[in-house]
Nucleic acid binder design. Sequence first.
DNA 1: CTAGGAATTGAACGTACGTTCACCTAACTT
DNA 2: AAGTTAGGTGAACGTACGTTCAATTCCTAG
Lengths: 201, 201
Amino acid sequence: MARKTGSHSDITGPRVRSAARSLIARHGFAAVTMRQIAREVGVQAGALYLYTPDKQTLLFDLMKSHMDELLEAVSSVDLSGPPERALEAFARFHIAFHLDRAEAVFVAYMELRNLTEDNFAVIEDQRKTYENLLERILQRGRASGVFAVHDTKLATMALIAMLTGLTTWYREGGRLDRGDIQDMYWDMVRKAVGADAALSA
Amino acid sequence: MARKTGSHSDITGPRVRSAARSLIARHGFAAVTMRQIAREVGVQAGALYLYTPDKQTLLFDLMKSHMDELLEAVSSVDLSGPPERALEAFARFHIAFHLDRAEAVFVAYMELRNLTEDNFAVIEDQRKTYENLLERILQRGRASGVFAVHDTKLATMALIAMLTGLTTWYREGGRLDRGDIQDMYWDMVRKAVGADAALSA
DNA sequence: CTAGGAATTGAACGTACGTTCACCTAACTT
DNA sequence: AAGTTAGGTGAACGTACGTTCAATTCCTAG
């Protein structure tokens, strides 16, 4: 036996990435074997190497394309308005984006230490770029007096951690709907940085 | 060659746990080998099995004793006062405790998925117990009107994520000292839940 | 000073890993 | 209808894993 009916690179490639993402999110990169990924895709382990040169690159590509998507998506969010508005836009974007991609986010945050030095540097740089968007909003808000933040770097890390944390407990079809979650998180973010109340759309 | 001068179970045991904790925090449980741990301790791999029945139990014991310590330590924090006071006590305790044990915390939060089902249930239960302490404070505060929190469960997760996140960026001897960090995080926590300002000791 | 147990070695066991490769076959081109 | 090739198999490679255990050495008690 060899090639099965209806097999196509266009189909298998994405399926490999999807299976890898899912398994890595559940069990961790080091704990997942190429044979497990292959089984999930319905293919032999050797076939995976038509789609990635090696396991490390598979992880890196997963994380890289996630960060690319994140930066691409956030680039169309308007963060140029008044700081309170920009912060709300950022927070709501962050939550919505992360709710849609819980597995990818989980991988991107948990598997940093399994990247080679070079690969780590690339992802870390992208992450910094993203976090800087938030920090600049906080800086503007502090400068104009609407935010009461002692240290914008620490506040940035605190807010990112809080917002990203939702991927650890959020499950599709749970008690809370996405809109509620966005509203409640935004409420906490807004108050945490001391933005004055009530500035809806 | 066999036993080296000055070797003692009382010394090697803790060193095994410490080396394991350190390596697992840096590289992840699945990526760390028994031989690496042994090398760090200065011992052969076989000797580790005098101190743990197997690798999985080593991880579990690390996490279990960390959670035991956490619950033991928090039990002597007075959380019975007014909600704002209790929240401050909890936040400051959480930060101080976690700053002292960055590696253990990192392991306890990142390696949950590498526990067997039974072991996971134990740790998860302890974690829930701890989080419930915070949630009860939030509930009391909301009931008495000093906290403005829409959903205490979500707020609990958000605050824990924010506070625990500091272990991902805090490094000994960095720009900020521990007191500053406590003050700034407490400030954000207090405002996030809508506790009225200025209620220092 | 000597026996006996505690601590540790070093080699070995079976298993499973990531990766390679010669071969095969279904589908597209002409 | 034949030829080409992308897509895939399945077996094999060397390595490294977790774990076991007989043998060895150091320490302690009497």
